[in-house]
């Protein structure tokens, strides 16, 4: 009887959080899955018997015009750059700052500042930097002796994607740096000192002691970087909105355009569902890759 009362108490204490979790996370996902099965514009009332199209919306995503596959490829490129460029750079900064250098707090604040600034503001800033006529980038190149046509950083299909990714990666360097810095600071000084006494250089201490110790935080950073890249939207929306001619489109841009410009609520919901599946898949995959194993590769 006491045991039963205990379970009831646990359930009652969990209930508010459970309701919030189901209401704010699970229910919208289920609704998105439901809507993704209909040809519906989101404005009129849904007619389940007439509007049901099954998985047709998912197939439509990969037709020649919507080019969801190409947008997905762009998101994967961004994820790759995040993991192999942004994170190592953030880690290097975190390791450097973790050594109690002079002005540590000031550097921390400076690197973290782009995370605090509104993405719209950052977008406007980079629009000015990239402006083909008066942008600081072209002005700088001309000062170096470049005298060709204005470079259209956001208007040329061949370079627009790279141009959009630079600020996207730059903005969150400070975010990952702060996560990793917290980990670096948490490494026991005794471990460092022991390694030093054994004759390790700074590089060897970082490689053999600090990085293995903060592996769980690196895992979190990688998950955030990959899922964040798959969901990337705001800065690209401000800079190019997916243009020129779809060159910088990512899945979220297509989703918004289908939902609110083309009034294709079913297709937009299908993209939302695919993004959720992809984010879960990569979070689990990364978790699996980072699992601690013994020397024989077994858990």
């Amino acid at each position: 009887m006491k045991q039963k009362q205990k379970y009831i108490a646990i359930f009652l204490f969990l209930l508010p959080a459970l309701l919030l979790f189901v209401g704010l996370l699970i229910a919208p996902i289920i609704m998105s899955i439901y809507y993704s099965l209909f040809d519906w514009n989101g404005l009129r009332a849904l007619d389940p018997s007439n509007d049901f199209v099954g998985l047709k919306n998912y197939a439509t995503l990969f037709n020649q015009r919507i080019q969801f596959g190409s947008a997905l490829k762009n998101a994967f490129i961004l994820a790759g750059l995040s993991v192999f460029l942004q994170l190592p750079f953030s880690l290097a900064l975190a390791l450097a700052l973790g050594k109690k250098i002079k002005g540590e707090r000031a550097f921390l604040s400076i690197y973290f500042l782009p995370v605090l600034i509104s993405t719209v503001v950052i977008g406007q800033l980079w629009l000015k930097i990239y402006n083909p006529e008066y942008g600081i980038l072209n002005t700088f190149l001309r000062a170096l002796g470049y005298d060709g046509e204005n470079i259209r950083w956001l208007g040329d299909q061949s370079i627009a994607l790279g141009s959009v990714f630079v600020p996207t990666l730059w903005q969150y360097v400070g975010y990952h740096m702060l996560l990793l810095y917290a980990g670096v600071k948490g490494v026991s000084p005794e471990l460092r000192e022991a390694a030093k006494l054994d004759g390790c250089t700074d590089w060897q201490v970082n490689w053999n002691v600090v990085i293995p110790t903060i592996k769980p935080i690196i895992k979190v950073s990688v998950i955030f970087a990959v899922t964040g890249s798959l969901k990337s939207f705001d800065l690209i929306y401000v800079l190019t909105n997916g243009g020129p001619m779809k060159a910088t489109e990512v899945p979220s841009i297509i989703m918004i355009n289908q939902l609110f410009k083309a009034n294709q609520y079913g297709i937009g919901s299908a993209i939302a569902v695919l993004l959720i599946i992809l984010c879960f898949f990569f979070a689990i995959l990364i978790g699996f890759i980072f699992k601690e194993r013994d020397i024989y590769g077994k858990k």
Binding site: N41, R65, Q157, P244, M245, K246, K261, A262, N263, Q264
Partner: peptide
Amino acid sequence: MPADEAAIYLEYVSSVYGGA
């Protein structure tokens, strides 16, 4: 044009301007 048609139309117009 209805929204879905207008969205397709504008995509083609964008490609025209880009010479694609």
